[in-house]
Design a protein around this nucleic acid. Structure first.
Lengths: 346, 346
DNA sequence: CTGAAAGCGCTTACAG
DNA sequence: CTGAAAGCGCTTACAG
């Protein structure tokens, strides 16, 4: 009953390099040259080939290309799977967009830290797909075990805001300290002298940098930095709320609290509310990252916008340049951050 | 100076099927059988091979496997890139976890709708990586142009909560209408008789289902559904805020508002706050989805939890079963939803 | 500027 | 239960 597929008419998307070569009247090598934008093809020949490519809807088979070229054209993104995905959403979008531009594929490898079988997971991930290079958003760029493994496997990587710069690799940074300095100064200028600070997860460079900026601004303006006003948080809502509770229990509670990210600032807001404090009347609150959350809270948060998407796109772009032997660019300038003033501060 | 790589010692992860065969003293076909868990290998032979695999850290080359097997072992996830990524985060995690279990790779294809060159994007995406099957979270399962294209390319797909069930494909649903019914009933039981409703994006099945549940609950309890209490939103914060403004401007404003997702409910909360309304004293507010946002707002939102992650994992699992010729399962029961009562309702 | 040959590392189809 | 041969669709290395 069912007819055998006709040989004459190719199914859409099933054409091979041989079909194109035949239709264009050239060798497969010439088709390969045209498709890969290599030089040394006469314009007329190139046109003939492109015309056949279009007619047959030819797309090179990625598997065949990888196998013969000993290159996978695959990048990996290794990240810690967070509850609040805003940061990773930007990292993902930036990386995807860079990959799309250069026709790379992106494979994801979420991790839950600490990960006892990290080495095994990553080995399998990298070897099986022959991942050519890896993007490491914070805090992955400081997992020494991971970095050692990648170096051993000779897989180049790009880190986004690591604490320690990985020698010989792509590192993309931002002016976190400067932004924190300005934000603190902004509060001081508004008259605040007792400013609480909730640190982030110590594994992230942002935590140290943001705290340093806070300290420097206090110092510049002759406000003494009091240890009792500083608490350790972990970048999540609950730790922010808990730290706020401690700060607000102080005999002399601060008039402003800087949380090292928006999710913790949301925790501060909730704790303050539950105590009947009015914001910003009784307490000013600021965060970092300008996530969607920041503008949905009440009152909308004063925060700092980092260009995460652009940073990820740059990291991936530089990494692919490196993989393709483009001249090593001078290290990128750190990206600037921007203070976004909303209504959570007096 | 530099020594040529020694032939004797293989670099980690670079072993091929030939190396394993040699070490185990068998043919490459036998190695292939063992690695792919095929039957008809003597236990002793299997052990020898596995031992060599372990010693050499052998992992089959995905490109070679694809090319020779005429299968890519790649799934695609096509989605609309949202501002608020909570829903997609769960879809992504569920899909990734199903793929990992079955050793598939996942490729992402975010889209911005409406997308004029959708056909071209998707064709390239599917053909180049030889994507075997595609996951379509809402609202992708109702883009007729997309479905037509996938059928034409003979790429099976799985839809998550589509409006219309795609015949012959995997469809995963949840009890959206029932949950909305219960939520509305909950409000009625608390004494509310004037309940505003903000619809979601009409392209999503959830919008119609949630509205239907609302209507049915009103009807059951003899509360007339008044058109002026129903507004169109689009699942985003701004549209929720705008709709709330209209509802609260009404001469007889509602005492409760149901927003069809949490992000719109956040907009309702903000609008109410700016008018100095107290929540839930003056106005009860509920959302849907139980995103992280819901528990970070003030007051924390009463909402409905959908098991999105599980739904995505199921969709991907069923799709892969289908690709591998497993008996077509009976259509999955719709997933149950759960009402989460917090403090935004009296 | 163009092409013929070899080979990437697996699986398929077949034989025994 | 096991294996020898062919081939997937490209790129590499080389020749002219």
């Amino acid at each position: 009953m069912a007819e055998a597929p006709k040989r004459g008419k190719l199914q859409k998307g099933k054409a091979t390099i041989f079909d194109v070569a035949e239709q264009a009247g050239v060798s497969i090598k010439t088709v390969s040259r045209v498709v890969n934008n290599e030089p040394n093809v006469r314009q007329r020949t190139r046109d003939k080939v492109l015309e056949a490519v279009g007619r047959l809807q030819y797309r090179p088979n990625a598997a065949a290309r990888s196998l013969s070229g000993r290159r996978s054209w695959v990048l990996g993104l290794i990240y810690e799977n967070p509850l609040e995905f805003s940061y990773m959403k930007d990292v993902l979008n930036g990386t995807l967009s860079a990959c799309e531009e250069r026709e790379y594929s992106l494979l994801l490898r979420p991790l839950t830290l600490p990960s006892p079988d990290l080495v095994e997971h990553i080995e399998r991930f990298v070897i099986q797909a022959r991942v050519e290079g890896v993007i490491l958003p914070a805090p992955m760029g400081d997992l020494s075990e991971l970095l050692r493994l990648l170096r051993e496997m000779k897989v180049p990587f790009a880190t986004i805001t690591p604490k320690t710069l990985a020698a010989g690799q792509v590192n993309v940074l931002c002016e976190d300290r400067e932004a924190s300095f300005s934000l603190t100064e902004f509060l001081i200028n508004r008259g605040h002298r007792s400013i609480g600070f909730i640190k982030g997860d110590p594994d992230h460079s942002a935590s140290g940098n943001r705290f340093a900026g806070y300290q420097q601004a206090l110092e510049k303006h002759g406000v003494s930095c009091m240890e009792r006003l500083v608490r350790q948080g972990y970048f999540d809502f609950d730790s922010g709320k808990a730290a706020a509770a401690e700060l607000l229990d102080l005999p002399e509670a601060p008039t402003a609290i800087i949380a090292s990210n928006d999710d913790m600032a949301a925790g501060v807001l909730l704790e303050a509310r539950q105590r009947g404090l009015s914001i910003p009347g009784d307490l000013s609150v600021v965060g970092f990252d300008d996530t969607p959350l920041a503008s949905r809270l009440w009152p909308p948060l004063t925060t700092v916008r980092q260009p995460i998407r652009e940073m990820a796109e740059t990291a991936a772009g530089l990494l692919m340049n490196k993989l393709n032997g483009k001249a090593a660019q001078p290290p990128k300038e750190p990206f600037a951050c921007e203070i976004v003033i909303r209504e959570s501060t007096t």
